[in-house]
Amino acid sequence: MSTNIEVAAQAATIAADGQWPLWEVFTQSEQAAPHEHAGSLHAVDAEQAIQNARDVYARRGGVISLWVVPAGAITASSASDAGPLFDPGADKAYRHPQFYKAPRGVRVF
């Protein structure tokens, strides 16, 4: 079983040159807003990543919550896959309300 600890440990593996591991920082600007990617930083562990994220990305205020993720733990889709991954979603008109008709004068919502 792959625990979170293992994932974090692998993701935060030290580089050969002693460089601290890279973390990605996500900030939430207000309640109910999504966390958005703010940038990255280096830190040796999660506690330090949170502290550094606070000082680097929240020092001007406007942040109410932080996520930090070891950069290596993020799997990103590949640009060459963009066609098969995303284009098919772009032409499914039946997923959108405008596709469906309602009798004139009736409010459906």
């Binding site: 935060a12 040796v44 562990d45």
Partner: peptide, 8 residues
């Protein structure tokens, strides 16, 4: 870094 490795 050494401290973090010990903790892990």
């Amino acid at each position: 870094m050494a401290h973090a490795e010990k903790q892990r």
